[in-house]
């Protein structure tokens, strides 16, 4: 369970990333965070695994106070949280399977990583993860030779190979075309339903958020302005979140 109580984040230059945010996310939920760019979506996602430090309030994950973690305990904590990025963040000059294997690096000795001597169980795990997202046959191709959608699925496989309990995804489909975006979102949904992994996803495209997520959190200027089931969202709530009428830009597919 992820629990935020009165969490604020003020950046060094004075901008407020988060402003008194309180929320609770149960295990196994599929949550989408929507809002304008710069509203604090990325900040919210990144505070959960302490890629960004919070400046005020308390943040606990499964009862662990995240702000007290550092060094070894922080790294141990991060192992159960997977992260997927807008720009895939793969090591481009390396094969797909070796990219997935990097997710196991935290548990391996440095000597093994240095020499590239991965254990058989790790390799099997990596291949299984690739199989789950349907790109097992691409395992030995260099990551930069894949299409954007395939690269994002490699990134997803990398996260799965980590055996996460929570997956944080920061705009995972923003760089993809509509067809690819849906396949990747389908993968997220399946992972959430079949494996019971909590999925917390930042998403720019409102239609995808409504279609896939069970719960929507709307953020505006660092504050939560909507938190509830996706079925209860109306035009009006969307207008409060965005502070204006939605444009075509906020939809992946044609606006209905």
């Amino acid at each position: 369970m992820i629990k935020l109580e009165h969490v604020s984040k003020v950046y060094g230059n004075g901008t407020k990333g988060l402003d008194d945010v309180s929320l609770e996310i149960q295990n196994g939920e599929f949550v989408a965070i929507i809002g304008l760019s710069g509203a604090g979506k990325s900040t919210l996602i990144r505070t959960i695994n302490k890629m960004i430090d919070i400046t005020d309030g308390s943040l606990t994950v499964d009862g662990v106070d995240v702000s007290t973690l550092k060094g070894k305990s922080l790294r141990k904590f991060r192992r159960k949280i997977g992260m997927v990025f807008q720009s895939f963040n793969l090591v481009t000059k390396v094969s797909v399977i070796n990219n997935v294997l990097t997710a196991r690096a935290a548990d391996m000795s440095f000597l093994r990583i240095f020499l590239g001597l991965y254990k058989k169980t790790d390799k099997v795990k990596a291949l299984e993860a690739l199989d789950k997202v349907g790109i097992l046959d691409k395992a030995y191709i260099r990551a930069d030779q894949l299409s954007g959608g395939q690269q994002q699925r490699v990134a997803l496989a990398r996260t799965l190979a980590q055996d996460p309990e929570i997956i944080l995804a920061d705009e995972p489909v923003a760089a993809l075309d509509p067809v690819m975006a849906e396949t990747v979102m389908d993968d997220f949904k399946r992972i959430n339903k079949e494996m019971g992994i909590t999925v917390l996803i930042n998403i720019h495209h409102v239609d995808l958020a409504l279609q896939y997520a069970d719960r929507i959190i709307g953020i505006k200027a660092g504050k939560i302005v909507y938190d509830g089931p996706s079925s209860a969202i109306t035009e009006d709530t969307l207008q409060t979140i965005y502070g204006r009428k939605l444009t075509d830009d906020e939809f992946m597919k044609e606006k209905k």
């Binding site: 695994n49 890629m51 922080l74 790294r75 141990k76 904590f77 991060r78 192992r79 949280i81 997977g82 992260m83 990025f85 720009s87 895939f88 963040n89 793969l90 090591v91 481009t92 990097t102 997710a103 690096a105 935290a106 391996m108 440095f110 990583i113 240095f114 990134a155 990398r158 980590q162």
Partner: peptide
């Protein structure tokens, strides 16, 4: 630094992140 950040988020130490990414 994207790949570095990604591997860092899995909880790997700095030296492992550097060597892998």
């Amino acid at each position: 630094m994207g790949a570095y950040e990604a591997i860092q988020s899995t909880g790997a130490s700095r030296i492992k992140c550097i060597w892998t990414s």
